[in-house]
Design a protein around this nucleic acid. Structure first.
Length: 876
RNA sequence: GCGGGCGUGGCGGAAUUGGCAGACGCGCCGGACUCAAAAUCCGGUUCUGGUGACAGAGUGUCGGUUCGACCCCGACCGCCCGCACCA
């Protein structure tokens, strides 16, 4: 019989996968209505939609496989599942392609979408493709303009000056990623900060709410909630004024925000951001100060660049008085590490208790005066070396605060500031308003018109969408919309006089801040059809990369609230459940000349070394790291699917490791998955050859058949539990075990009655196996089912219910109890569950190896955890 | 620099969340089938000592709590993600 199954024709995914994809499509398995009438509970599964770069990559395969497993599993559990797909289609790469290769961004984007759609379809995803849209379609971005105008009317929009990275050679604004070591990526010119009038969304208005509501997102990863909470950054502190000993540029005092007013007596200096008005006033009359500020402006706008730069400063020569001891004065510096965007753009420096201040004080030769004494130190000997002390302790060297705990001193200092009228306690937020202006072509136009007479005038709703012009040129730097000969010239909607359109477009994070809501009613003539959104929102399970933990997810949470405020949505939170997947990694390879090599150019030798396939030159095997084009350590999903099939790719990507961790793509791993696909199919073949057997009563089954049935029903429980917990690698392992048990049953011999019973149990097992595997390997499951029933049953596995476990069979009939002596394992007991404690303890002590370990010693304590472990604690 | 996370055999990982460390897979070793190979199937595989029953060590490092620690606490090391104009 074994020979028969191994000689059976192998599973041909090349035929089967397109066939089943067509079958699902023809029956409309995955289509749902905007407002379904069937009364099933709803489940909205969404994966982060892709940027259409032109090819799917392994990160997409992982993301969409994870989502598809959830979607198919939930469908089997009886939910009406909304599972849509679309395209995050605006962004910089399309403009880069236009500049580098002369392709229009729209053509580039739509061609890429067509190519990627075809690749995704080959994965066999259970998507409702009728809901597909791209954010670069006016039908989408016109609705986004409507949302913006409603937010404008609701006071959620602001326009103000803000800093950008400016390339003085290319005369263009640069994104942070286009600034490399402080220079423009194309021109190589040192970048300057430049101030422009920009549009902002007032996310800060929702800061308390966005923070507080994190507690209720109980199906979000804890670390994402922590990261968002820290990003929003509520802090309690004080705002206080430092009076200048002599006014400068009409400024008499500097306002400072601090979270540590308790350390005011440890002050050593006051530091201003380079963009601070007082710094600019000083620079007006001091070329050296102006030069220092100009140098700071060359650092670019990214916080990481500013904070990793060496701390530098410029002593303005001005001095401020201490708020509690006005006779003490301190120097005012301009410092490159003070951020204008946070607090008031000025700090008081207390080097003893803040590491940045200490680094600055050491480089600039400023004094360090400790005022908080750690609990285990004494005042006479305590000194700060190269580490600032930011822990708890008692105040010293601090006048009226001396002896207080730091926390109490903080309250006392605020009270004193308020009594003296030079400061007050405040709550401060790290979160800044969301700058949405981009000086680029390939984005959603901001629907506003500037009129010299009327000022800023919103585009009337009736004139939406404001469409991008097609006839643009990329032959010079800067924003093609601003260069366009006619597009921006329009009559003022208010007075009719000649006016100009806003030429800024939206940050692409705006596009992705509400697409999940649009999917509920993608054809609606309003941004969202209320009834559809009320039915489907919030997203029950959102899946995407951890790199979006803060910005995208926070913007989406804010936008949802803004849509509630403007009457477009009812649900306050967009994503009830969130899962963040890890990256897909691969070894990297370098040729003898240092070039990076693609995996397909490299051959691994049995001794572990590697050579080039062509020519056999030695190859250095580098680190395992995230797949990236620059390191060429990428594997093309299209090629993998063509060679092994979608089910194999899906199975491997799920089986390798827990989905929230980085996974390593290996050739051996895919090959292993491919073998399992064939093996599973052979299990169905082996059973299909048996005569169709009526269900006998379980009592008629022999012990081998009953044992297999136990495995079958325990597998239902185990796989279900693993899928519910996103432990897809464990689900895979359980299915491997299940397949092993089935193979063992297949080998079994016995008399006719036993074999009949076993045959029946095997048929049951295969029927259940394929349904448990279906969310992960959907095509194979359909093929197995067709083979099992000989085509007599044309129900699609995609439409079948999830198997139900027989509780009696799934329950444990025996437990293994570990027996320890002094915490060391000395033996095990196999017993039926639920035995009385004295019986278990007696059996444990009688176990030969345990008895030897106990011999001659006095048992002082017996620990028994029911059905699990015994531990004897002995004296001596 | 700041914020968040991760670390278990040769490799990916499992461990009912404080109770048998190493499930399952990959790789490797041995065997069956074969003229032979591939494929397939079976068995073994944390390390050290021992023919063996067994004993000792072991979850990045060092220390702590506990009858018992991969799990909890403290310090350190290494790697990864984010830092507001990449998406």
């Amino acid at each position: 019989m074994t020979a028969l199954s191994t000689d059976a024709p192998p599973y041909r995914f090349q035929d089967a996968e397109p066939r089943w994809q067509a079958a699902w499509d023809n029956r409309g398995c995955f289509a749902v209505a905007d407002i379904p009438a069937d009364g099933k509970p709803k489940y909205y599964v969404l994966e982060m939609f892709p940027y259409p770069s032109g090819k799917i990559h392994m990160g997409h395969v992982r993301n969409y496989t994870l989502g598809d497993v959830v979607a198919r599993y939930k469908r089997a559990r009886g939910f009406a599942v909304l599972h849509p797909m679309g395209w995050d289609a605006f962004g910089l790469p399309a403009e880069n392609a236009a500049r580098e290769r002369g392709i229009h961004p729209a053509k580039w984007t739509w061609d890429n979408i067509a190519a990627m759609r075809a690749e995704l379809k080959r994965m066999g995803l259970s998507l409702d493709w009728r809901r597909e849209f791209a954010t670069c379609d006016p039908a989408y971005y016109g609705q986004q303009q409507k949302l913006f105008l409603d937010m404008l009317r609701a006071g959620l929009v602001d326009r103000r000056e803000s800093w950008v990275n400016w390339d003085p050679v290319d005369q263009t604004v640069l994104a942070n990623e286009q600034v490399i070591d402080g220079r423009g990526w194309r021109s190589g010119a040192p970048v300057e900060k430049r101030s422009l009038a920009q549009w902002f969304l007032r996310i800060t208005r929702y800061a308390p709410e966005l923070l507080e509501a994190l507690d209720r997102l109980d199906r979000w990863p804890e670390r994402v909630r922590v990261m968002q909470a820290k990003w929003i950054g509520r802090s309690e502190g004080a705002r206080l004024h430092f009076a200048l000993t002599a006014p400068a540029g009409g400024i008499a005092a500097v306002e400072v925000y601090t979270t540590r007013p308790d350390t005011l007596f440890g002050m050593s200096f006051l530091a201003l951001a380079p963009e601070h008005p007082l710094a600019e006033a000083v620079a007006a009359g001091n070329p050296e100060a102006a030069a220092f500020i100009a140098e700071c402006r060359r650092m670019g706008t990214s916080e990481a660049a500013i904070e990793t730069a060496e701390k530098r400063g410029f002593d303005t020569g001005l001095r401020v008085s201490h708020p509690f001891r006005p006779e003490l004065t301190f120097p005012v510096w301009i410092a490159n590490f003070v951020l204008m965007e946070y607090g008031t753009g000025a700090i008081f420096g207390c080097p003893a208790h803040d590491q940045r201040d200490l680094d600055f004080a050491r480089t600039c030769g400023l004094p360090v005066r400790p005022v908080v004494l750690p609990p285990d130190e004494d005042a006479a000997n305590f000194a700060i070396a190269d580490r600032a002390y930011d822990g708890p302790g008692r105040m010293i060297n601090s006048d009226f605060l001396d002896g207080l705990e730091a926390a109490a001193a903080k309250a006392r200092a605020i009270a004193e500031l308020e009594r003296r009228g030079c400061g007050r306690g405040v709550v401060n937020w790290r979160l800044r308003d969301w700058g949405v202006s981009r000086q680029r072509y390939w984005g959603c136009p901001i629907p506003v018109i500037h009129c010299t007479a009327c000022g800023m005038v919103p585009v009337p709703d009736a004139d939406l969408p404001v469409k991008l012009p097609d006839d643009v040129t990329f032959d010079r730097p800067g924003n093609p919309l601003a260069h366009h000969p006619t597009w921006k010239h329009v009559p003022c909607p208010s007075c009719g006089a000649a006016a100009t359109r806003e030429t800024d477009t939206f940050d692409t994070f705006v596009d992705s801040a509400w697409y999940f809501a649009r999917f509920c009613s993608p054809q609606a003539s309003v941004p969202v059809a209320q009834a559809a959104a009320d039915h489907w929102m919030p997203v029950d399970q959102y899946i995407g990369g951890i790199e979006h933990a803060i910005l995208h997810l926070l913007y989406a949470r804010f936008f949802t609230r803004a849509m509630v405020a403007t009457g477009h949505l009812a649900a306050a939170e967009p994503f009830a459940g969130l899962f963040t997947q890890g990256m897909v990694t691969h070894e990297s390879y370098r040729g003898a000349d240092g070039r990076w090599l693609y995996p397909e150019e490299v051959e691994r030798l049995p001794d572990g070394s590697a050579v080039e396939r062509q020519g056999g030159a030695p190859v250095t095997v580098g680190r395992i790291e995230a797949m990236s084009k620059s390191k060429r350590n990428t594997v093309d999903p299209g090629a993998i699917i063509a060679r092994y099939g979608a089910d194999t790719a899906r199975w491997f990507i799920l089986s390798d490791n827990p989905p929230d961790r980085d996974m390593e793509w290996t050739e051996a791993g895919v090959a292993g998955a491919a073998r399992f696909v064939q093996r599973a199919f052979r299990l169905a073949e082996g059973v299909a050859t048996l005569a169709d057997l009526p269900p006998p009563p379980p009592a008629a089954l022999g012990s081998a058949a009953t044992a297999l049935r136990r495995v079958t029903h325990r597998s239902i429980v185990a796989v279900t539990e693993a899928l519910e917990g996103f432990a897809f690698n464990v689900a895979v392992a359980r299915l491997h075990e299940f397949a092993n048990a089935l193979a063992e049953a297949e080998r079994r011999r016995g008399d006719a009655a036993e074999l009949a019973g076993l045959g029946w149990a095997r048929r049951e097992a295969v029927g259940i196996f394929l349904r448990l595997a279906a969310p992960m390997m959907p095509h194979l499951a359909e093929e197995m089912h067709a083979r099992l029933t000989g085509g007599a049953d044309d129900t699609l596995v995609a439409d079948m219910a999830w198997p139900e476990a027989d509780a009696d069979l799934a329950a444990a009939d025996q437990v293994t109890i570990a027996v320890q002596v002094m915490g060391k394992l000395r033996g095990t007991l196999a017993l039926p569950p639920g035995q009385p404690e004295p019986a278990v303890l007696a059996a444990a002590a009688a176990e030969p190896n345990v008895a030897r370990a106990l011999d001659g010693r006095r048992i002082v304590k017996r620990i028994y955890v029911p059905d699990r472990i015994v531990n004897f604690v002995v004296a001596g």
